[in-house]
Amino acid sequence: MTMAKGANVELHAPAVRVELGRRSGPGVPDVDASALLLASGKVRSDADFVFYNQPTHPSGAVRYEGRTTGDGTATDTLHLDLARVEPAIEKVILAASADGGTFGRVPGLYVRVVDAADGTELARYDSADATVETAFVLGELYRRQGAWKFRAVGQGYDTGLEGLATDYGITVDEPQHAPPPAPLTKVTLTKSAPTVSLAKQGGTSGALRVNLNWEVRKQLGGRAGRRARGLDLDLCALYELTDGTKGVVQALGHAFGSLHQAPYIHLDGDDRSGGLATGENLTVNLDRTDAFRRILVFVTIYEGARSFADLHATVTLRPAHGAPIDFSLDECTVPSNVCALALLTNEGGDLTVRREARYLVPDRGVSPQRTVDRAYGWNMNWTRGRK
């Protein structure tokens, strides 16, 4: 059901999923979704602000479920259990903020509300008139005579997330008499300093997003250039759980995994652009760190190139809480089509991240997956698969 700005509709569902989507690509700002729970027009505390760094409301009624990408689109998802929303909450604002540009540069921006039980679309609003806004209220869910309704809003702020937050009563500045805490800074892993503790970076809960992006270093002509433009890299993960279960998460064989049940790892989609805003993305549920023994993140070349030579790739691990971790891959000097990126190991309840950046060369007739399995001792049985 597509709606005009200002229109409203009653929601006949006890729980809904809200999707804030847009098209992605070069030059498009990154967009983050959020929800604000209001009582008398304001949040009661900063806990009523749900977003990627605070993904679950204390009541459990609203949670941020992460981002999916693919086919030139990106979608952030919020889950709202309307039956569990506290009686004091009168309205839930559905908002988004843009990083690196304005919403006038975000094509195909929309909000969609579906029944969480069966996926039936209940409401949709497509925004087409954004200009200089850097924060945007796409819609709102509100109570009216005992029922929940959705209204298409489509209003923004040119003062960014700070302006939106202040408008709804969220504390932005620290008290003048208290010195701000020292922020955690981004960690770049290198050959000489290859490991870091996620806990020391503040990454003890929520979602850990692993992003791989790349570009071709050389402008190749002719046939080689066409292969470069059609390059398809696949981000994958071998996992071993504490109960002994082993497996792989990858696009091949449509083994995309699951975030909220074993293996608690989910591959967002299969991207061919390599852009920073999209690339290949893998999400790990840090709320289930206790279930992991080890996770090996690796990348294979599915098509478009014979090796990683002439590619410039960067890996970023971004925990929901805490500072990001990143590293670049070394120049490839061997005929490798599979590279071990990072090894996450459970050490006393804390996941330690170790930079691998290790190019592997499969023996003749041996798949990239089997090659990385042998190198790291997973000892799994492999069969042929396809996308």
Results as ranks from 00 to 15, higher is better:
283 T>I: 14
25 G>I: 05
190 T>W: 04
29 P>Q: 03
226 R>F: 07
154 G>A: 15
266 H>A: 10
346 N>Y: 12
293 R>S: 10
337 N>P: 04
104 G>R: 10
14 P>D: 06
106 V>F: 08
319 P>Y: 01
343 L>E: 00
25 G>K: 07
217 R>P: 06
104 G>P: 06
128 A>V: 11
322 G>W: 01
157 Y>C: 03
12 H>I: 09
292 F>N: 01
43 V>I: 15
264 Y>V: 07
152 A>E: 02
148 W>T: 05
385 G>P: 05
131 T>S: 11
148 W>Y: 10
200 K>I: 08
325 I>E: 04
256 F>V: 03
252 L>A: 13
363 D>Q: 12
333 T>W: 11
53 N>H: 13
20 L>H: 04
334 V>D: 12
68 T>P: 06
270 D>C: 06
50 V>M: 01
205 S>K: 10
54 Q>Y: 03
249 V>E: 00
280 E>W: 07
371 T>L: 00
358 R>L: 13
109 L>R: 02
296 L>Q: 11
20 L>I: 15
321 H>D: 03
386 R>G: 14
97 S>K: 05
314 T>A: 10
50 V>N: 02
273 S>R: 14
371 T>H: 00
284 V>T: 06
18 V>M: 09
90 E>F: 08
353 V>Y: 03
371 T>V: 05
74 A>Q: 05
378 W>I: 12
281 N>M: 15
159 T>P: 01
356 E>N: 07
141 L>G: 00
17 R>Y: 06
115 D>E: 09
161 L>H: 05
211 N>Q: 14
32 D>V: 08
305 A>K: 12
370 R>C: 10
360 L>Q: 06
179 P>M: 14
179 P>F: 14
5 K>M: 04
18 V>K: 03
95 A>M: 06
279 G>P: 04
303 E>W: 09
23 R>T: 07
367 S>H: 07
346 N>F: 09
43 V>C: 10
16 V>L: 14
